[in-house]
Write a protein that binds this DNA or RNA. Sequence first.
DNA 1: CATGAATGAGTCTTCATTCAT
DNA 2: AATGAATGAAGACTCATTCAT
Lengths: 215, 215, 215, 215
Amino acid sequence: MIKERRYSRTFANIPDEKQHFIIEKAIKEFAQKGYITANINRIAKEANISIGSMYSYFPSKEALFLSIIDEGVGVLQEALKGVTDTKGGFFDKYHQMLKAAITYAKEYEYLHQIYLEISTEGLSHLATELTQSMESVTTEVYEIILAEAEASDEIRKGLDKQVVAFCLDNIAMMLQFSFASKYYYERMKLFISGERDEDELIDSIISILKNGMAP
Amino acid sequence: MIKERRYSRTFANIPDEKQHFIIEKAIKEFAQKGYITANINRIAKEANISIGSMYSYFPSKEALFLSIIDEGVGVLQEALKGVTDTKGGFFDKYHQMLKAAITYAKEYEYLHQIYLEISTEGLSHLATELTQSMESVTTEVYEIILAEAEASDEIRKGLDKQVVAFCLDNIAMMLQFSFASKYYYERMKLFISGERDEDELIDSIISILKNGMAP
Amino acid sequence: MIKERRYSRTFANIPDEKQHFIIEKAIKEFAQKGYITANINRIAKEANISIGSMYSYFPSKEALFLSIIDEGVGVLQEALKGVTDTKGGFFDKYHQMLKAAITYAKEYEYLHQIYLEISTEGLSHLATELTQSMESVTTEVYEIILAEAEASDEIRKGLDKQVVAFCLDNIAMMLQFSFASKYYYERMKLFISGERDEDELIDSIISILKNGMAP
Amino acid sequence: MIKERRYSRTFANIPDEKQHFIIEKAIKEFAQKGYITANINRIAKEANISIGSMYSYFPSKEALFLSIIDEGVGVLQEALKGVTDTKGGFFDKYHQMLKAAITYAKEYEYLHQIYLEISTEGLSHLATELTQSMESVTTEVYEIILAEAEASDEIRKGLDKQVVAFCLDNIAMMLQFSFASKYYYERMKLFISGERDEDELIDSIISILKNGMAP
DNA sequence: CATGAATGAGTCTTCATTCAT
DNA sequence: AATGAATGAAGACTCATTCAT
């Protein structure tokens, strides 16, 4: 069941299946059209419910959008949960995270396209709230696995772990963007012209981060 | 004079000063409102020209937007030109690039907010064209300085230079986003909670890339 | 118990207290929002009943509104009842009526705001019915007290008692409006700029009516 | 030409005839439907202009409504102008005012129906502004003619001229309402059952005010 | 060339009313 | 009787674009 929040009790009471069907259609619309161009009436039609019902579920377009973000956070948490529990060293875990970034970007393509939307100025009034929703999960994961890595001497002393986490997540995000958005996909191809398998790409990235670029 | 392309000869013929004034107002509007919400009539009014003139200069909203991107590319090229010419080693040059990313993000705040806009699905039909405009300049710079770095043994053999360039630019872009967009600024603060000077931040990042994370 | 009329037997059967509670909430909503903007669903919520019940009590929004008017007539009758029974001359009685107009306008502020609503064209199809409800009580009172006044020589012969009644009620109504509606309150203040006590105001009005304006 | 105010310069520049045609259609709609139910799109269609033009003339429904009120004030001023200039005593002038009230209520029926609308709670946020617009003209006229009347000993000393003006205008307004609104027309007939000519009615009213009711 | 008036499709949101449970 | 989920028509307002002057 969708995490209770921006929507009405009415929505919470309808069957899970119907809930997810509506959210799915909404995700598709927001992803394909962007926040502003997305059309609530069209979403309702796609989801086979009346506009009246749509508005009885979600008090506004914004609330529906935020609910979708929440859904996305759920998916993200799911994806990350496996990582921290995994046996294996730090770089294995980060490997898995990058792998997950790509996999989820493809599987939940629409959802990831929405991530791009939220940084838009049109939604800037939600910036703080959205960041909290989206990133607090992620930052925590980095904190944990970097602390473990330090304890087990997998990473060198003296690293600024906050900056490290920032860099690692930056790379993960751009990778995600690159597989979810047409624009960033084109951009990636501009950088990496030859055929490069996803696993090769991830390995290369991790090798750079692990061993550094210096000779 | 604005680089000739998406706009009419008429626009090319008006004084440079007026050209730049119009583009400046357009940048502001697109940055503050986003592509869709930006209002051509309002831009015309701000720029003290009639809508009729606006449409005689640029055939459509899209064309005006693309002209702005071109302007942005110009600024970017300007910023990068200095870097390749610089004396100093590879990491000095990258340091300068990150520094420039932040400086320009602040100085041309509006312009950088537009970079975020272009990855939106609403503009996805322009993805290829936009990528070409925006990134071809950048990729070339990385190619050059990485080749030099290899030649002068500043970086170790066997690095996948394409992936390296991709990573370096990913980090540069996210840094830029972090200083231009409210959303990404909040996100950065979530990662880096303590006071961290921009130079410190850049140094930390480069240290990680240079020496790697492994002990 | 609320006077039986526009509503169902079902409503008649619920406890008086509950009946009045519902009517009270409805009065408030209609007064604050006006007939059109008033929201039946909101009234139901405020009155702690379901919309289904609301519609089982009153067949339509209009019916509910008319029931409220009936309630208002009840209040009005109550107010006037005392007047005819009063000892004292004709002008004392009219004095009491004006006093009551002000007092009730303040006490039943919401109800009086609704009187203004009923003259609106949106409700014009109910005009005849509403007038009957509202004014038949009043006209009768004027008829009685003017007949008495004539019999006891308090007023001069030859007066057109119908026109007199019309004038007296016009003045009473406008006074009521002036204390119930923001618009008419502002208007009154435009006419009567200095501080004027309600009793002074009433005395002045009656003095004019009694003695005339001629020297 | 319409008095310059709530509308754009664009509207001011179109032919007077077209201006008045639009205003006329708007008056009709607002009068027949009431402020809330009135439909801007329908007004535009009736006036043979596009909605876009409508909104380029008047920035909002409220602005259009206020412009209509202004128009009404113009009509009112026109009507009252004649009165102050008239030769004749005070009661002749008031007679003319009442006559004008009835005549204009019939001639500008729609406009007068709108007067009823403005006291509605839905417009209460405009109460002060509207009162100023509507009534300041009237109060001034009463002030002038009452001062003259006092100077020429047509009215007795010691009258509270503010209250007198208030009463006279109350009667004039209710008379106006009675001939413009179906509701108040019904009400008037309830009071005055027999056939009574307008002039007779006015004479009766004035007789009461002039000579008083006392024997 | 410049102007700016005109156009009208498109969108979010509200709410009286119905009806299955 | 009571409930409250579902419905969908309706309406204010925006803005890219056109074109007559």
